[in-house]
Design a protein around this nucleic acid. Structure first.
Lengths: 318, 318
DNA sequence: GTGAAAGCGCTAACAT
DNA sequence: ATGTTAGCGCTTTCAC
């Protein structure tokens, strides 16, 4: 059952049927009524794929997601989805695990018009590669693209990082551990962390107090454990998430050790419960902006301010 | 630039080009080489929408999501996504807020072949309505569809609920508060909670210790606050999430009141941190199964066991 | 092994 | 207002 069948059955042409379906243009009341009746009678529904093909657009937006365990992505997707829904767009989830091959496949699907735009919440692929695909459709990143002329909405980490590190400095902490999700060689976030550190302390972070590939509570726990196994005893942890900070805390708790100062990120529930200072990156807002850029196909860069939220950690932990 | 252009440029027909693109069938090495060269030279990429139209399928699965604040959905989507990715399917997010009109729109898009299947992680629409759309495509629910012959993967709440409530009974708690996300009139989960309660206590839950529309930490906090304002003093809270239980706890903490026994659900990080007993519903597994049903278009019902996880709440809370 | 052509189902420009 | 028709771009059957 297609539009031509309805045309025949109603005695009108497919053009008129199309007009009725899309209720635009001028159609006589009589035609509209007759056609609607037939549509109902034969339980006809127009085919969206055919429509997309004819219109040359899908109203779909692909969203590349390295992993979904991290709240960064959850919040981002939330913001993107809100905005997309409001504009009649749909979100297609594209899990990548930072794998370049997979991400390239997704970029190629943009080329193949599987979706109108693609948003990288984060990426394994170098920006250079991504940039090359700009010609094929609307591409938006959620990290500062630097010199590349790529649309982006992103959180400005620097000032809040500096605030947090200054706070650490002011309180005279000496052994500063840093937990990251990815290495500085591939992660802009890691680089930002380092540069802020250097600005505040005039020296690079200590390698022996550094740990990468940390993304979960469990990872935080293991990281703390490992430091202790190596006889490293940080007095403060600058972590990449409240959940991770909570994992660190748990290690100390389980071993009846005094809990060091913690600093989280993402303003997660765990931080709120445990009174861990955090950094709010406003990722929902970032997602909203990214989605708007995607929809309007604008090559703009939209930074969003982040903020250091201080909380007094309880001296006695349960 | 389309397949016919490539055909002309290469001196072959579009049929042969199609064969090369899909590298199936028999194509001579010579033809393959020539055509591939032209494709590369002219930077041609086949159009996925046209392909979908011709094939009559999209490899997309719509996932209806009432809200994404609740971890129930996060875990479910996680499971769905894993399975979909493994099978070359894509997930299209369909936020509904339990709104029937919106959900109906999504069902109609199934009819319009916008996606091959649709999964309801939860629904506002009555099953009867959903059932009517079964003829238009693969539909899967993530709740027990009861008498309706609808595909479903869902958590078996009853036994773990009874375990938890028996534990409550055994420990002689008397004022049992129940927090729910939706009313028994619309929510199967709420109904299950009630029936388990009745089985264990031979009486219905007390209305004055009941609260619905609770979905977040803040809601939990407010619920506890409200009970106290109404001079109701539960000695145990059976909540619909660890985060919510954590919110309840926070109220007592902030007001220097003794923290009552809490029971959470979903096995969330907050519960782990605070040692709140919980119920693990294995939603990731449910998601996996639901997705498999969607892909294979099987009308099966797959229950998944849930389990009560006991944890000793600390007597002294921080 | 390859080509021709008939779909897939809809839209929109043009004609009347 | 309505009809006609040429797209949109790919797949697949049927000949040869």
């Amino acid at each position: 059952m297609n539009i031509r069948d309805i045309a025949k059955l109603s005695g009108y042409s497919s053009g008129t049927v199309s007009r009725v379906i899309n209720n635009n243009d001028y159609v006589s009341e009589k035609a509209r009524k007759t056609i609607k009746k037939i549509i109902k009678e034969y339980d006809y529904a127009p085919n969206d794929v055919a429509r997309n093909l004819s219109n040359g657009k899908t109203c779909d937006i692909g969203v590349v997601l390295p992993h979904n365990k991290h709240p960064y992505y959850t919040q981002l997707v939330d913001g993107i989805m809100d905005e997309a829904f409001a504009s009649g767009y749909r979100i297609v989830l594209l899990p990548s695990k930072f794998d370049s091959k997979t991400e390239l496949k997704y970029l190629n699907r943009l080329r193949r018009k599987a979706y109108d735009s693609i948003i990288f919440t984060s990426h394994g692929l170098p920006l250079e590669k991504i940039y090359k695909y700009k010609q094929y459709g609307s591409i938006v990143c959620c990290q500062n693209p630097g010199e590349y002329d790529i649309a982006a909405a992103y959180t400005m980490r620097e000032s809040s990082y500096i605030d947090a590190l200054n706070w650490i400095k002011l309180h005279n902490f000496k052994k500063i551990s840093i937990l990251l999700s990815r290495d500085t060689t591939v992660s802009a976030t890691a680089q930002k962390t380092f540069s802020a550190y250097e600005k505040v302390f005039n020296t690079a972070p200590k390698n022996e107090l550094l740990n990468t590939n940390v993304t979960t509570f469990e990872d935080g726990y293991s990281a703390a454990k490992q430091f202790h196994a190596n006889h490293q005893y940080p007095d403060v942890y600058f972590t990449n998430g409240d959940d991770i900070a909570a994992g660190v805390r748990q290690f100390y708790l389980d071993n009846s050790l005094e809990i060091p100062q913690l600093i989280g990120q993402e303003n997660q529930l765990s931080g709120q419960i445990l009174n861990i200072p955090t950094i709010n990156h406003h990722f929902q807002q970032v997602g909203k902006l990214a989605c708007r850029l995607a929809i309007n196909n604008q090559t703009k860069q939209l930074p969003v301010e982040s903020e250091f939220i201080f909380r007094q950690q309880k001296a006695i932990e349960n």
